Simulated assay, not measured.
Amino acid sequence: MDLQLTGRRALITGSTSGLGEATARLLAAEGAEVVIHGRSAQRAQAIADSIIENGGKVFVAVGDLGTDAGADAVAERALDGGALDILVNNAGAYEHLDWAEATSDIWLHTYNVNVVSGVRMIQRLVPAMRERDYGRVVTIGGGLGTQPFDSHPHYNASLAARHNLAVSLARDLAGTRVTSNVVAPGAILVPAVQDFLTALAPERGWGGSWEEIEHNSVREIVPNDRTRYGRPDEIAGAVAYLCGPHAEYISGATIRVDGGTVRSAF
């Protein structure tokens, strides 16, 4: 299926690893020119070089979106190559802390990094999309935003805020050809997750092989219909769909990519 992204320009924040990297690679493979963003110029350039080797078109924008100055620098660099059609707000941070460990300072830091960073990019880039009457904003949320665990409350709450702001933006964009939607991943297998689960396996009795660890840990921690963890490419596929013209009639929606973890009556 041709997603009709050739000639579009996309900024994917936090795209030097994980879901952001997978999304950037897929959008580039679909013909979009992608802007790789991160706080490390070396890591961002390495991803860019890899995409270029595969025939993709790439820019690199480096900066800390947790500050206004950093957001200014990233937006300015991203626009150096031309107008942006797509903004994927993926950048964020995560710490596994319980209620006692998550101090008020950590709550404030998490909200700034996970929520306000996306707001900064929306305020800098979406007005031009509105003027041109075309654009796609995709926010990466998560199932914990609607069904939180008892731990890492600061992170759960920040995901809920990301969902909320994306819908508010969609309402503000009513009557334009700029859309705002959310992709909500479930538990996704990235290297850090696999390392964490493998280290925890002996204590939990999950087995020795990765196949055993995945099956048993999913059953215990995040039971879902697919009986496994998701893969970054599966999140990227949902994002890519929302970025194209086939998703023109989707507004303020949350696309769950969680294997059926989150249950809903609707």
Rank of each mutant, 00 (worst) to 15 (best):
L3A: 14
R8V: 13
S15Y: 06
S15N: 05
T16A: 13
A22D: 01
L27S: 03
A29R: 09
E33Q: 13
V34G: 01
V34T: 00
G38L: 08
S40Y: 07
A41K: 04
I52T: 13
G55E: 00
G56K: 10
D64S: 08
T67L: 11
R77A: 15
D80R: 10
G82D: 00
D85K: 10
D85Q: 09
I86T: 02
L87Q: 04
N89W: 02
A91V: 12
G92V: 10
E95F: 01
H96E: 12
W99Y: 12
W99K: 14
T103Y: 03
D105N: 05
Y111N: 12
N114D: 10
V116M: 06
R120I: 00
R124P: 00
R124T: 02
V126Q: 06
V126I: 12
M129K: 10
T139M: 02
A157Y: 07
A160R: 03
A160H: 03
R162N: 10
R162D: 09
S168C: 01
A170D: 02
A174Y: 07
G175N: 10
G175L: 13
R177F: 14
R177G: 14
T179A: 15
N181G: 11
P185G: 11
Q194Y: 06
T198H: 05
W206H: 01
E212P: 09
E212S: 13
V218C: 08
R219S: 15
V222Y: 07
N224V: 11
D225Q: 10
D225P: 04
R226N: 06
A238N: 09
V239I: 03
L242D: 12
G244C: 00
I250N: 09
T254Q: 07
V257H: 04
D258V: 14
F266N: 06
